[in-house]
Nucleic acid binder design. Sequence first.
DNA 1: TAGATTGTTAATCGATTAACAATC
DNA 2: TAGATTGTTAATCGATTAACAATC
Lengths: 211, 211
Amino acid sequence: MERKEISKSVLKRLPGYLAYLKSIPEGGSSYISATTLANALGMGEVQVRKDLAMVCDGGRPKLGYPRAVLIDDIEQFLGYDNTTDAVLIGAGKLGQALLGYGGFEAYGLNILAAFDVAPAAESEGGKPIYHISQLESFCRTHKVLMGIITVPAEHAQSVCDQLISCGIKAIWTFATTHLEVPSNILVQHENMATSLAVLSMHLQAQIKEKK
Amino acid sequence: MERKEISKSVLKRLPGYLAYLKSIPEGGSSYISATTLANALGMGEVQVRKDLAMVCDGGRPKLGYPRAVLIDDIEQFLGYDNTTDAVLIGAGKLGQALLGYGGFEAYGLNILAAFDVAPAAESEGGKPIYHISQLESFCRTHKVLMGIITVPAEHAQSVCDQLISCGIKAIWTFATTHLEVPSNILVQHENMATSLAVLSMHLQAQIKEKK
DNA sequence: TAGATTGTTAATCGATTAACAATC
DNA sequence: TAGATTGTTAATCGATTAACAATC
């Protein structure tokens, strides 16, 4: 499968397909059609077909796509097959929850260790928590490319700068603040505030309707 | 300010403006221009201006928008001024982290209690954890409209159905599975897999470039 | 063969950006 | 007044959807 330029919107839908494909119990047909997928996920079938065309080569008319191959293709496309090492900065509540989560391995993410200014907390789920001063040497020795920021907003930018100076190329941040980075660094903002805004909006509309 | 129909894309940017506006130290000018905001957040100034036009009435040429008023308008628009009560289902690691987080109050979200099939864990941050069997009566007495799902994917749909039958109108889910709901219920999927896909993609591209 | 399904090309839709007029 | 800034109208861009041809 030759690799096409893929848009972010398509990329964001792929994990959904993957999760659904994996959730199908073994034993049924080994093929799945775009129509079936679309109905199950409440999407348009043309969209599903176009998305799949980006990552796998050809389904078969009348049958659909071979499920196992499709799973492999999406996983490979998303890079879930080769693990990415990451460090996490900020061993507060959220940080420790992510550190101990363990479910990220399925997405090819391996959090090696956490760092904090006051690493009082013990290791969480077998993962060590170090003092922030050890960050650079750790990142260099382990050639870490990804950093996860779970510190309070006011420290996020400085942590971000540190990570970049340690050679990190991609940052996943949970801090509710904008981060300024060079153009070759990717920042992915896990924005809970955004989700809450959407929910809050819906509830307001619901309440207003009732009146 | 008369309320216009607002698109989801605009809605999602509002919390960003708000966070930035609040982060500005007191004492400077009490006005802020769309240009300043745009530069600070790395966005286009026209977009900022158009977004702000949706939630507040008129800035002043040459000056910009009065900061305090703008903050109030956005908060009111997003419904951060009147608190939404919520219940959380699934008191695992992530669930407990969210329960104990405490930062959600700023977004008008108040998690009243958590529910679990095995509520062995003690109350987290002063919030009680009950057995799932008490969910319905709790929701009815407290007139809860929002539910947060942090159970494993395989139980998410059944929890979702329960929530809806308890009168919940908006669902915030962290489970990596599609939820089937009636059209008047809003599901907001906090999709970590999506974020990871974007990050993973960027790293793959970086690595390939290096070769 | 007929029909379900894929894949492609064209049309539509929405959101962003550009150009410009209005204002203090 | 001149210039920074707002707000609006038009143009562009990208993504989604619709229509249709190809295939097993």
